[in-house]
Design a binder for these strands. Structure first.
Lengths: 343, 343
DNA sequence: TTGAAAGCGATACCAT
DNA sequence: ATGGTATCGCTTTCAA
């Protein structure tokens, strides 16, 4: 931030006042003679002038910028959403700045402060935890447009998200319908206070009158990565009575599971059915194409942006929070089939 | 950007001057009585004061922020690097803002301007094209710290990257060494003026005294995704004499290839060897673990950040550009083996 | 110890 | 048509 060209420099070079230069350069001029305009514009180009957004925003009280906070840049679901949202916001004339938190609440709070200090006009967030939202609730209460991109509808903050509970319910129901009675659940959300998927899993069991065996519910120690899914398998398969199906709370976990099965001679789906969550791109390209639940990024980003615009434009007093949940679809491929007959 | 709390508000509430409040709040006070300090700090907390970074930077002439421009948020190689870089910059007291361009030169230029207008102190960029760098060269010449995260060493801009040519050379050499003589090349970089990988491919052929059959060099129409690799296969396999091996310029492409092979009864690696590039996480988890070339994100991000710090700190006159290339390693797994004996 | 005043770069309002 | 002046929120001398 050193040798920058300012309006003042152009004014000096052309002999006009700072004011005139400013008026010309931003085209908001009522009546400036062609001659003047050309002189100033030429000078600006020669000097490679670029307006200082800081100064500009300071006076205009607008940054036309929104912030997106993502818990994890390696999750293609999140980055795809971010990418779509950025594009659409651009169409509305807004810039986007993205911050990553690495699933860390402290960094999340820091990112929140940094973005606010930078005066972004709204914040979209993929929070680390679905339950610890007090800081966000407080922010929204104070009149700041905050929007969650995942979570359970609580009505305190605007939320646009898929209905995780419903997705999980459908998927578990699919498995139960196939005849499975021992369905393991690899619940990566548990560690982050994301309980919707487990709820759906439980509810489906109830609907089928099947008891949940909690020994089959395993929380992977290291997030949603494939290695994490792989490593969790030793615990899952340690059960006295092995499961006949596994529901992983993310496709990436399922990929690790598939690898474990191959290495350990467990046939999928013959011996074990495997289902995932999110329908990431490669899931259809796996050796055993994965049965999963869709993640409708496009509708989500569209609805999020639309809502965000109304929030930003409702100067001062925000309308009461709204929740939009999109029901994900079951994507049936070949990784699940009825269990082998009882021995 | 409405009802924000300013120093003025705290001053009004406590009866001290704006100045005193400022001094206290940023702890840079020489000697302020405990009493005063407590009163002001309490008021600040009650009002939920957050300094306006715009105003602050305007006067300090520092933003302590660097920008990262990524061509594609869906490429885990790029996002991992970004994540690592962000973390390390944070340790140096710098914030990071990320912008995505969707592989579009116009959006890239726009992102560049936006970040500069925001007065970021340096820009790291994963450019869309390796050849069209004029705008970046000009920027660097004007004294702005710009750093490329991929590209061919040209000496005009700082560059920290893997040596794509060498990686490609090693991989092609591996295949040639295995006995392959008809090696197809799926060159996604070609479309973006990224010629290093092709160079390595060609050089290895020369070293082995094998002629390159250009009909085996295919440019996928739709980037580096798995579907793109899948679709390219019809063209690759249309050749009169089919290749015995395929080198894909990205693991994601290779995943699409693998899928195509499975659906079309082509056995890998028995009938066709397949190699990729980048060693993304799932590559080791595929049904046929992929032979590929590593992408050392950690060394890259470390070197990039180190260099960036010296650039930022060398106020005014930047040192001449430096190039750091890291030699990637061959990662041999099971997707490649010697070709079947000639019929 | 605390406060007043100038200035960062740009904009807006009011004059001329 | 063009320019002066106040202002945005904060920091930085310099006084008191």
């Amino acid at each position: 931030m050193s040798h920058r060209v300012r309006l003042k420099d152009i004014a000096a070079k052309t002999g006009f006042s700072i004011n005139t230069v400013s008026v010309v350069l931003r085209g908001s001029s009522p009546k400036i003679p062609e001659a003047t305009r050309r002189i100033i514009e030429t000078a600006a180009r020669e000097l490679d002038y670029l307006p200082n957004a800081l100064a500009r925003s300071l006076v205009s009280q607008r940054t036309r910028t929104v912030g997106i906070i993502l818990s994890n840049l390696l999750n293609p679901i999140l980055t795809l959403c971010a990418q779509l949202i950025e594009q659409q916001l651009a169409e509305h004339g807004y810039d986007t700045v993205i911050a990553a938190t690495g699933n860390d609440l402290v960094r999340e709070q820091k990112a929140l402060d940094t973005l606010r200090a930078r005066q972004v006009e709204a914040i979209l967030i993929y929070p680390t935890s679905h339950t610890r939202l007090d800081h966000l609730v407080a922010l929204r209460r104070s009149g700041y447009p905050v929007m969650l991109l995942t979570g359970a509808p609580a009505g305190e903050i605007d939320l646009v998200s898929i209905d995780n509970r419903s997705g999980s319910y459908k998927l578990t129901g699919h498995l139960l319908g196939l005849g499975h009675r021992r369905i393991a659940f690899l619940d990566a959300g548990q560690a982050h206070g994301n309980l919707e998927k487990f709820d759906g899993y439980r509810a489906a069991h109830e609907a089928f009158g099947v008891a949940v065996d909690t020994s089959l519910v395993v929380v992977p120690e290291a997030g949603t990565s494939a290695p994490s899914g792989y490593r969790s398998m030793t615990r899952v398969m340690a059960a006295a009575a092995r499961p006949t199906a596994i529901l992983a709370s993310a496709d990436s976990l399922a990929i690790g599971i598939l690898r474990w099965c191959r290495e350990n001679g467990v046939e999928v789906p013959g011996e074990l059915s495997v289902a995932g969550f999110d329908d990431i791109e490669i899931s259809a390209f796996l050796d055993v194409p994965l049965t999963t639940v869709s993640y409708p990024s496009h509708p989500i980003s569209e609805k999020a942006v639309a809502r965000l615009m109304t929030l930003i434009e409702s100067a001062g007093d925000l309308p009461p929070p709204e929740t939009v949940t999109i029901d994900p679809e079951l994507v049936v491929r070949s990784s699940c089939r009825p269990p082998a007959r009882r021995r």
